[in-house]
């Protein structure tokens, strides 16, 4: 099946979140999304795959296959797992180029601003950074 472009998936998510009237519904939805996260292989829950800068431990792994990137993740914290799931839903199976070119604009649109502050507890920024780093590494490898 053809994977939809990043922008289309972003718009879908923005649309889904638009229905929520209060923040609690929004978080309940994020928590629900956590259940759909492509779970990282337990053997890959190593310190190497840990994202630094999060208050809860979160692991992110990526593979490069047939020109696209496959992400998997997990976290001890349910909200963080949901946020990881949200990011993966958009970025999974995309090309390194598309991931690198994305500005992750849906994150701002969803009003998850408190997760974007340069705070020590913050996880979202670190996850986005790590996804981009993976994409960059795969792109570099592929161009050799």
């Amino acid at each position: 099946m053809e994977v939809e472009s990043i922008r289309i998936i972003e718009d879908q998510i923005i649309e889904e979140f638009a229905h929520f009237e209060d923040w609690m519904d929004k978080y309940n939805y994020i928590i629900e999304m956590g259940k759909d996260v492509p779970k990282i292989d337990p053997d890959l829950k190593t310190d190497n795959n840990l994202i630094s800068g999060c208050q809860s431990r979160v692991w992110l792994h990526a593979e490069y296959k047939d020109g696209i990137v496959l992400f998997s993740a997990d976290s001890e914290a349910v909200i963080t797992r949901g946020l990881a799931s949200l990011l993966i839903r958009v970025m999974n199976k995309q090309t390194p180029e598309d991931i690198l070119n994305s500005d992750f604009f849906f994150v701002k649109k969803l009003g998850l601003k408190e997760h974007l502050s340069p705070n020590r507890s913050n996880g979202l920024v670190s996850m986005i950074k790590q996804m981009k780093l993976y994409a960059l590494a795969f792109q570099t490898k592929a161009s050799r």
């Binding site: 923040w23 609690m24 978080y27 999060c54 208050q55 809860s56 001890e76 914290a77 349910v78 909200i79 963080t80 408190e114 507890s121």
Partner: peptide, 11 residues
């Protein structure tokens, strides 16, 4: 997890 609890309590 304390992070989950803290995020909600903050709101």
């Amino acid at each position: 997890h304390p992070y989950d609890a803290g995020t909600i309590i903050d709101h």
